[in-house]
Amino acid sequence: MTRTTAVGFDRVTKGYGDVRAVDGLTLALHPGETVALLGPNGAGKSTTLDLLLGLRRPDAGTVHVFGGEPREAVVAGRVGAMLQSGGLMDEVTVAELVRLGCALHPRAYPAADVLARAGLTKIADRRVDKLSGGQAQRVRFALATAGDSDLIVLDEPTTGMDVTARQAFWATMREQADQGRTVLFATHYLEEADAIADRVLVLHRGRLLADGTAAEIKARAGTRRISFDLDGGPDGSPDGSTDASPDGGRNGTVDEATLRALPHLTALDVSGRTVRIQSADADATVYALYGLGLYPRNLEVAGLGLEQAFVALTAAEEAKQP
Rank of each mutant, 00 (worst) to 15 (best):
R99A: 14
A108W: 10
A60E: 12
A197W: 00
H64S: 15
T145H: 02
G32V: 00
H64R: 15
A257F: 00
D125C: 06
G222P: 06
V128Y: 02
R78S: 08
Q167P: 04
E33I: 00
A95L: 11
G24C: 08
T145G: 01
M89L: 13
L104Y: 02
E91Q: 13
N298H: 15
G80E: 07
T4N: 14
L294I: 09
L190S: 05
D283R: 15
V202D: 09
N41P: 04
G303H: 02
K122E: 15
L208C: 13
K130Y: 09
I217R: 01
Q135I: 08
E191S: 14
Y295P: 09
Q278W: 12
G67E: 11
G24P: 12
L143D: 10
L53H: 07
D148K: 03
T145L: 00
A214M: 10
R181N: 02
L27Y: 02
F9D: 06
A288M: 08
A144F: 00
R225H: 12
L104N: 11
G248Q: 10
T274E: 14
A195K: 05
G293D: 14
A81H: 04
I226R: 08
E317M: 12
R3N: 10
G24Y: 10
E192K: 01
L38V: 10
E192N: 06
D162S: 12
T159C: 07
V128P: 13
R205S: 13
L51Q: 06
D23S: 04
L38G: 07
A284L: 09
L262C: 07
G248L: 09
K14H: 14
R199I: 03
S46F: 02
G236S: 15
R78W: 09
A73Q: 08
V35W: 03
V63I: 05
L38F: 05
T274V: 07
V128L: 13
T223P: 06
N298S: 15
R207I: 07
R78D: 13
R224G: 08
L289E: 08
G68Y: 10
Y287E: 14
P58D: 03
V254S: 07
A116L: 05
T26K: 09
I226E: 05
A186P: 03
V94G: 06
A284P: 08
A210D: 11
T182D: 06
D269H: 13
D113L: 13
G303V: 05
H105K: 11
H188C: 11
L27H: 11
E91Y: 08
T34W: 00
H64I: 02
Q278S: 10
L51D: 10
P106Q: 04
L292F: 09
L37Q: 01
L37M: 03
L265N: 05
R260L: 10
M89H: 13
S227I: 03
I226A: 10
A186H: 03
D178H: 11
R224C: 06
L51F: 06
K218V: 07
V114D: 02
S149H: 05
R205F: 11
V254K: 03
T121G: 05
D211S: 05
R71L: 15
H105T: 07
G68M: 09
Y287H: 14
D255N: 13
V63Y: 04
P238A: 10
S241Q: 14
A76Y: 01
T5A: 14
P322S: 15
M82G: 03
G61A: 11
L52Q: 04
A60W: 05
P234M: 07
A142E: 02
Q84V: 01
F169Q: 01
D148W: 02
D148L: 05
